[in-house]
């Protein structure tokens, strides 16, 4: 019995971690800044590739993952400076720009690095409960997802940078008038978003096939999670992930993956129909 219960929790944690980690970066870039970042998957791929590269030259996995996230963040800052910066006033065009960027990046990786690279294997081993065996690393992923959520909350709600960032996103002119260096704030926020995407790639790198287009598997889930979360990203994304993870887990377990996938998308349609402003609109209203 306890094995079944734990298995339920494990499955939930697994889907939850996947949704949160893939959506966290997008929550900032798309949810807060309004940039429709079609290259989100490529930041994820960047994190994964850098991780593998660093592990190959002998760094411990955790260090490599941290550095990979930082690298993706720095790449994000550069991309923001060169491209994204021009699109804050016309967010829909950012879709086209980042889609172009994503084509360039995936194909360049294919030409430079090749069509696939060898994996590095999953660390941490496994444990058994009842008839089931579980991978310990999947729980590490869950812990990381929770840590990311807490970290985001602290950075954006409790620090001075967070206050300035939120002010800038809400009204850049006013924030600038009050002395915030909005250009830098945008750049850093985008960098954090890209870094979190990189972290997602870094964390999933040991468990996945590594090809240049690997980011694509994350993209739909991440957009869906962020949008269902609604306007208030910090409050919305986590409950959206919980909600979608429960639905998907339940359907996966009873009807298989295809129904899980279709069911989750149906749930998205229904949630938005009932709450056109996303989940956070309810939470915020309650909060007041």
């Amino acid at each position: 019995m306890s094995a079944e219960l734990f298995s339920l929790f494990y499955q939930f944690a697994d889907v939850f971690a996947f949704l949160i980690l893939s959506a966290a970066g997008l929550a900032i870039v798309f949810g807060m800044m309004g940039v429709i970042n079609m290259a989100h998957g490529e930041f994820i791929m960047c994190g994964a590739y850098v991780t593998v590269g660093l592990v190959r030259i002998g760094l411990p996995l955790a260090v490599a993952q941290g550095l990979a996230a930082v690298t993706a963040g720095l790449v994000g800052v550069v991309v923001e400076f060169l491209i994204v910066r021009r699109f804050y006033k016309r967010p829909l065009d950012s879709l086209l720009a980042t889609w172009g960027l994503s084509l360039i990046v995936t194909q360049s990786m294919l030409l430079i690095v090749g069509s696939s690279i060898t994996g590095i294997g999953t660390p941490e081993g496994s444990f058994a409960i009842g008839p089931y065996t579980f991978s310990t690393y999947r729980l590490v992923l869950f812990a990381c997802a929770v840590a990311v959520l807490v970290g985001l909350y602290i950075v954006f709600m409790k620090t001075r940078f967070g206050v300035l960032a939120r002010a800038t996103m809400q009204n850049a002119e006013m924030a600038r008038a009050l002395g915030a260096r909005t250009g830098r704030i945008y750049a850093i926020s985008f960098g954090i978003g890209a870094g979190l995407a990189g972290l997602c790639g870094a964390l999933y790198a040991p468990t996945m096939t590594l090809i240049p287009t690997m980011g694509a598997t994350f993209v739909v889930e991440s957009f869906v999670t962020v949008v269902v979360g609604g306007a208030n990203v910090l409050l919305g994304t986590a409950p959206a992930a919980v909600f979608l993870a429960m639905i998907r887990m339940a359907l996966n377990a009873s009807y298989g993956q295809i129904i899980g996938q279709i069911g989750m998308l149906f749930a998205v349609i229904l949630i938005i129909r009932v709450l056109p402003e996303g989940l956070s609109s309810v939470l915020v209203r309650r909060g007041r």
Partner: peptide, 11 residues
Amino acid sequence: FIPLGISQFAQ
């Protein structure tokens, strides 16, 4: 039966 593009297999 797994839809194409699915990458997570815990279940």
